[in-house]
């Protein structure tokens, strides 16, 4: 069942990539210069961003033991957006050991955002899922405002639009190549800790009695999720709900075992973003317009989030 699902999803992903390569505002043939320079990197980048967001959702839900956790909802994306925008606007762009300063700055702010949200939502040493979400929403609104302010002052309205709504329209090969290592490292680290994440399903204390070094695991995994979010935000702005929808959908099909949840979420995250970005390019193509992919995701994702919230209430959890 699980191996077959991996196979089916891989095939779907290949099919979607194939479709996305040839469907667009204009149909491009293989040898068209725009195919190699624009279309191909864009499709690849959408897949990478999907992987980054889906896996950071899996990690955050596992570590925070909160099924509603997601980098966008917790304000980690918006925090990262502030970091990336600051780095760009202040011209503090440099490259250390082949790593660009933009994702690093985004990472620092993402991490700060997680920390703030987590501390804000702690009441007497405990966090309830709903308080965590509320703190995330508030921080997200705050960071989005700062982000808009930064970019407005810098005088580029087009960029505000890009960052806040989330878009892959600026995709290029440099983006693909700088994003790839984060995606690879992220999924390897997540998989490395898959057994700890499974033990955490029993709660922090029970995981500790099973030999899991809770603080260390939490630190590394939250850092990883923040870095993955930051890498995604740096190239695509704020795209929500991928990290929420994907793990939920996979859990419904194969259960919460992270050994399957992680690879299957990675594949489905890529599939979802490739399709969503294709839709973003195509839907308003007759009007010669492109919808930001973040808008496509929010159109589907926000109702889904509300559905989850409501189901949790009905189940009385």
């Amino acid at each position: 069942m699980k191996t077959r699902l991996i196979l089916i999803l891989s095939l779907c992903l290949l099919l979607a990539i194939g479709l996305a390569l040839f469907i667009g505002a204009t149909s491009l043939s293989f040898n068209h210069p725009a195919f190699l320079q624009v279309r191909l990197p864009r499709v690849l980048l959408s897949a990478l961003v999907g992987l980054l967001l889906a896996i950071s959702g899996v990690i955050l839900q596992g570590v925070l033991r909160n099924p509603l956790a997601d980098p966008y909802i917790l304000g980690i994306s918006a925090g990262g957006g502030v970091g990336a925008a600051l780095s760009m606007v202040l011209g503090a762009q440099f490259v250390v050991f082949g790593i660009s300063s933009i994702p690093l700055s985004a990472f620092f702010f993402s991490l700060t955002a997680v920390y703030v949200v987590y501390r804000l939502s702690q009441v007497a040493g405990r966090t309830s899922p709903e308080t965590l979400i509320l703190a995330g929403v508030a921080l997200s609104a705050f960071c989005s405002a700062i982000l808009a302010l930064i970019i407005k002052i810098s005088g580029n309205l087009e960029a505000v639009y890009f960052w806040l709504l989330g878009s892959l329209s600026s995709a290029n090969w440099v983006n693909v190549i700088t994003t790839l290592p984060y995606a690879l490292a992220g999924i390897i680290i997540a998989y490395y800790f898959s057994k700890e994440l499974n033990a955490l399903l029993l709660g922090e204390e029970m995981a500790a009695t099973l030999g899991v070094e809770i603080e260390k695991v939490q630190l590394v995994l939250i850092g990883t999720a923040s870095l993955m979010t930051a890498a995604a935000v740096s190239v695509s702005g704020l795209i929500g709900f991928v990290g929420l929808i994907i793990p939920h959908w996979i859990r419904l099909m194969v259960g919460p075992n992270h050994r399957y949840l992680i690879p299957l979420s990675a594949l489905s995250g890529m599939l979802l973003m490739v399709v969503a970005d294709m839709l973003a390019r195509v839907i308003l193509a007759p009007l010669a317009m492109e919808i930001p992919v973040g808008v496509v995701m929010a159109l589907f994702g926000a109702p889904f989030f509300l559905y989850l919230l409501r189901r949790r209430r009905l189940e009385g959890k």
Binding site: L201, G203, V254, G255, P256
Partner: peptide
């Protein structure tokens, strides 16, 4: 008390 994990056999 232990929470049963949803989706686990």
């Amino acid at each position: 008390m232990m929470e049963p994990i949803n989706g686990f056999t």
